[in-house]
């Protein structure tokens, strides 16, 4: 008999290790959420969730912690950046997968990967050097606005460029997985290429497009360094795209470990992190929901 003793035990043991690894991954978000909630509970015991979320009053020294202006800044920047990035990514992905020769796509892949790999600090610096003055000197005057350039729109542009490679990669993948025969079927029914893209490919790709944008949105919402470098960081409810903002991640990054002598401040920052966490979670659920709803219809 050549079978080694203990073979079965070893076999089962390997399985257990794999299971532990998966458990770790699954538990991670749960642990994170609980940790944040635990830390923020101090603040939550003194204030209602509603007043924390919708109060504009941010005066830590007076124990006033209203997150409204931060939440709104974050939403403004994120949604604006997605609005910039979405059409660019969609049109590029359609061009690369439907019109361009296949070696153009091969050439683009490393370019996209390089863009994705650039550290966010570099995007931030580039934003300060290029985008901020561009807005202050050229774009804002077009709308009769005077600004330093450190604005919501600057943050949104930098952010859009940062998530483009990320979203574009997913979209290319989505369009590439559509079988060619579906295109041929539509063409053979007398549809033009553009009609085929509009009525068939776009519908087929729709769930994938939504999930790409959903992931992009989550990523944009949490992006910190590059945004805080160009967005101005003024605690005020933004009233337009040419005003400065102060998104949630910037609040945490700027202040954690700084003014910890102020009571509750630590807890307030954890609350900010918790809000961030929950909103990203909501984005994910919303896009999942949209996808499953749509997939039932096609």
């Amino acid at each position: 008999m050549s079978i080694k003793p203990g073979r079965n035990i070893r076999n089962r043991f390997h399985n257990i290790w794999m299971l532990i690894c998966i458990l770790l991954i699954v538990l991670m978000p749960v642990i994170l959420a609980f940790g944040l909630y635990f830390k923020a509970s101090l603040l939550l015991s003194d204030n209602s969730v509603f007043s924390l979320l919708f109060s504009k009053d941010w005066q830590p020294s007076k124990q006033n912690f209203g997150f409204y202006s931060f939440i709104l800044s974050s939403l403004w920047i994120t949604i604006l950046s997605l609005a910039i990035c979405a059409p660019v990514c969609l049109l590029s992905a359609i061009y690369l997968t439907q019109y361009a020769r296949s070696n153009v796509l091969k050439l683009m892949h490393p370019v996209i990967d390089i863009l994705a790999g650039i550290p966010s600090v570099i995007y931030g610096v580039w934003g300060i050097i290029v985008i901020v003055p561009l807005i202050a000197n050229h774009i804002a005057p077009l709308f009769d606005v005077e600004t330093s350039g450190y604005t919501i729109i600057a943050g949104a542009i930098v952010l859009a460029i940062m998530i483009i490679p990320f979203v574009l990669n997913i979209l290319i993948e989505v369009f590439n997985t559509i079988p060619e025969q579906l295109t041929e079927a539509s063409l053979s029914l007398g549809a033009s290429k553009w009609e085929t893209i509009k009525f068939v490919l776009f519908r087929k790709a729709f769930p994938g497009i939504i999930s790409a944008f959903g992931l992009g949105l989550s990523r944009a919402f949490g992006e910190t360094i590059a945004v805080l470098m160009v967005v101005g960081n003024v605690v005020k409810v933004p009233k337009g795209i040419f005003q400065p903002g102060y998104p949630l991640p910037a609040l945490i990054a700027n202040n954690y470990g700084e003014m910890m002598s102020i009571p509750m401040y630590d807890s307030a920052l954890m609350m900010a992190a918790l809000i961030l966490f929950v909103v990203v979670l909501l984005f994910n659920f919303a896009s999942r929901f949209a996808i499953t709803r749509f997939e039932l219809r096609i």
């Binding site: 025969q181 579906l182 041929e184 079927a185 539509s186 053979s188 009525f199 519908r203």
Partner: peptide, 13 residues
Amino acid sequence: MGLLSQRPYPLPM
């Protein structure tokens, strides 16, 4: 010309 392919590819509708 109507085209019928190897596997059916119904349009997503």
